[in-house]
């Protein structure tokens, strides 16, 4: 039997768990409307049907389409089978609010704005937060730490969207340094010209800062504690006795402390995403948060479900990437899977 690399086994295990989580999530999506008394989706269909009575030609076709997509008249196991098999083909159904546009196309056109905001913001906040946290830990019991720690603690509790409101008010409404809404000027259409990219970055600054400034706080708090623990370990004392430079020792400490923060990165992405979706609302930023808000306020259940399926699969994919990265960086994980 050929030996399989423990690294591959680790990734397979993680992948399997993430796939199981995704399946559990799909079950939740499927079960929720059907488990709630009065089935809100059925109620919505009845509403469309009543409109169909008054306006037979067009709305009746819409009604038949949704009746077929939800298949509520069929037995539950058939509904579940239909739901899953349609998902396999990438069919997320048809939007009600944006009828007759397909949910998958709609989400695909809004998703890049959200990812373009989220990914850089998460990474920048992570890097800055860890550096600042390590600095605070190094300068422990000095004025630096005494000033930084309360600031981190408060920052970590600020909702992104509330900071967004304040930044918008101060820098866009009052000082007029940044635009008040959108991802680009309404007069321009997206293109790769320098003028457009510049305008886009101008609109990007405030939403980006709202997320980064707040997210720094949480990372810094975590890193500070990790570094403080690490600074007390035997190898630090030994290195000091050997007369190694502070800079060199700090390098070791930083590398050892950063590992748990990588796992933290995977777990925190969901929270950041949730907050960022609401932040998009404050800036009328044309991302999935804005789309979700439209869907929620019109009770467009296919669009709500589809948006969630895509957001959660993006998140789980990102989780898997972070897990792989972590295993690649930390050899202890690979070893632990062969019990060596």
């Amino acid at each position: 039997m050929p030996t399989i690399s423990p690294f591959i086994i680790y990734i397979l295990r993680k992948g399997l768990f993430i796939a199981a989580t995704f399946f559990a999530f799909l079950l939740i999506i499927f079960a929720l409307p059907r488990a709630i008394p009065g089935n809100p989706v059925a109620a919505l269909l009845t509403q469309i049907f009543q409109q169909a009575q008054a306006n037979p030609d067009t709305v009746k076709a819409v009604y038949r389409k949704f009746l077929e997509e939800f298949g509520l008249h069929k037995p539950l196991h058939e509904q579940l089978f239909d739901f899953l098999s349609r998902l396999m083909t990438g069919d997320l159904g048809t939007s009600i609010a944006f009828y007759p546009r397909k949910v998958a196309d709609l989400v695909a056109s809004y998703l890049p704005w959200t990812l373009g905001l989220l990914i850089p913001a998460i990474l920048v906040a992570w890097a800055l937060g860890n550096l600042l946290g390590a600095w605070a830990a190094y300068r422990r019991r000095t004025r630096v730490d005494n000033a930084l720690l309360p600031a981190f603690l408060v920052l970590s509790q600020v909702p992104y969207y509330w900071l967004a409101m304040i930044l918008l008010y101060v820098l866009a409404v009052t000082a007029r340094v940044f635009p008040v809404a959108g991802a680009y000027p309404p007069a321009m259409s997206p293109s790769l010209t320098p003028a457009f990219i510049l305008a886009m970055l101008h609109h990007y600054t405030l939403p980006f800062l709202s997320i980064v400034i707040v997210a720094i706080g949480g990372w810094a708090i975590g890193m500070r504690v990790l570094v403080i623990y690490e600074l007390r370990s035997d190898y630090v004392e030994y290195s000091e006795l050997l007369g190694l430079s502070d800079k060199k020792i700090l390098g070791y400490v930083f590398r050892n402390s950063i590992l748990p923060q990588i796992t933290g990165l995977a777990l925190s992405m969901g929270t950041v995403m949730g907050g960022a979706l609401i932040t998009e609302l404050v800036f009328s930023y044309p991302g999935t948060g804005y789309l979700l808000f439209r869907a929620l306020s019109t009770l467009d259940y296919p669009l709500i479900q589809g948006t969630f399926i895509i957001l959660v699969s993006t998140l789980l994919a990102a989780n898997l990437i972070v897990d792989i990265l972590y295993a690649y960086i930390d050899p202890r994980i690979r070893v632990s899977y062969v019990g060596d």
Binding site: I18, T21, F25, L315
Partner: peptide, 24 residues
């Protein structure tokens, strides 16, 4: 713990929005 890890991996704010959306 499998149940816990699954719920931990699914962001709570998204789950909350999803559940709340079905209640008028």
């Amino acid at each position: 713990m499998m149940l816990t890890d699954i719920v931990l991996l699914l962001p709570s704010i998204l789950l909350m929005i999803l559940v709340a959306a079905y209640f008028k």
